[in-house]
């Protein structure tokens, strides 16, 4: 593990058992995440993109120990503690919960309608017993609320009084009040209007720099990821297919899936004819994975070897990894 890595996944798989299969045969499983390896550097904004069903949320949760890790190692090292997530005792897990947090997608579903904003933000402090007095709790709530640009007079109100953008700021304040080191933001701006989305993205970036946080930013929206992340990993069917520093990935995408994703983003220019191919079909069913490369069923460039062997991630440039048999010949 490199010195400045905060959290790393090595060959991580998450399998979920499903019903069916033979009585005494092996239990069928859905392989939500399969052999994923990635390192997230301290203080970085790491983007994870992919379509629905690509396993990005499951991977994010595995890194929070909120999804069962079937095999592989997730290692968290913030300089104070060093945890291997698959074997932690209860005390360590409790401590890890204060160091890692999750921001959800839907700010309407994530906030209890019966609690005041102050209570919502204070709850993690109270549950984790991080503060010793009510005064201290109030002080920390006010501090983080100010950082998240919430009006302090609003702390006494209930969430229904707020718009989507304000609610998302409340969710962010709650996630950050325990001063975590690692934050997973799962589609945190997907439910917001563009003007509010821009505001929340700017806020996340500001807070990240101010508090020295490390973000795993999960999103299906490549243009959002392009603007906020330093490093991007693209997932398809539970596997990482390409990972690179943001600029490198967007200027020089090598995997056909990454290219297709980029070309599918509707351009603001009505005359822009998308240069790359449009993808046919959909992501295959996880219970019935295709042989070889998992993208071969939709890949316009698939050849025999793609249908037979599964490509492995290989390094093709500075921090740029791609899992494709044909990356060299296809430009």
């Amino acid at each position: 593990m490199k010195q400045d890595t905060l959290i790393s996944a090595t060959d991580v798989s998450v399998h979920y058992p499903i019903s069916g299969g033979k009585l005494f045969g092996p239990k069928p499983v859905v392989r939500a995440v399969e052999n994923v390896t990635l390192n997230i550097t301290k203080g970085s904004f790491f983007g994870l993109v992919g379509e629905s069903g690509s396993g990005k949320t499951t991977l994010g949760r595995a890194m929070l120990k909120a999804a069962p890790i079937t095999s592989g190692i997730v290692n968290f090292n913030d300089g104070e503690v060093n945890y291997s997530l698959s074997n932690m005792d209860a005390k360590e897990l409790k401590d890890y919960r204060t160091r890692s947090q999750l921001i959800f997608q839907d700010p309407y579903a994530a906030l209890s309608p019966r609690m005041t904003v102050r209570d919502i933000i204070a709850e993690p402090l109270e549950i984790m017993k991080l503060t010793s007095s009510r005064e201290e709790t109030d002080r920390r709530v006010r501090e983080i609320a100010t950082k998240c640009r919430l009006n302090l007079e609003h702390l006494r109100r209930f969430p229904h009084a707020f718009s989507g953008g304000q609610r998302q700021r409340i969710s962010i304040a709650r996630a950050l009040v325990s001063e975590p080191k690692f934050v997973v933001a799962d589609e945190s701006v997907a439910a917001l209007d563009v003007s509010i989305q821009a505001d929340v993205l700017n806020l996340l970036k500001e807070i990240q720099q101010e508090m020295g946080l490390t973000f795993l930013f999960i999103s299906h929206d490549l243009s959002v990821v392009a603007h906020i992340c330093d490093h991007v990993a693209v997932m398809y069917f539970g596997r990482l297919v390409e990972t690179a520093p943001t600029r490198e990935l967007f200027n020089n995408p090598r995997h056909p899936y990454t290219k297709a994703l980029l070309s599918a983003i509707p351009s603001l220019d009505p005359d822009a004819k998308s240069l790359a191919q449009k993808l046919e079909g959909e992501i295959p069913s996880p219970t019935n994975p295709p042989p070889g490369c998992k993208f071969q069923t939709r890949c316009p460039q698939a050849i025999d070897i793609c249908r037979r062997d599964e490509p492995q991630l290989e390094n093709i440039g500075e921090e740029h990894d791609v899992a494709c048999h044909r990356w060299e010949e296809l430009i």
């Binding site: 989305q197 821009a198 700017n202 392009a226």
Partner: peptide
């Protein structure tokens, strides 16, 4: 104009995202 400025654009990664001030 505000809507378009708030939009993250792939052709210009350096341009800052400018939210429309205030709430609806």
């Amino acid at each position: 104009q505000g809507l378009i400025k708030a939009l993250p654009r792939l052709d210009d990664l350096d341009s800052p995202l400018t939210p429309i001030p205030g709430d609806i």
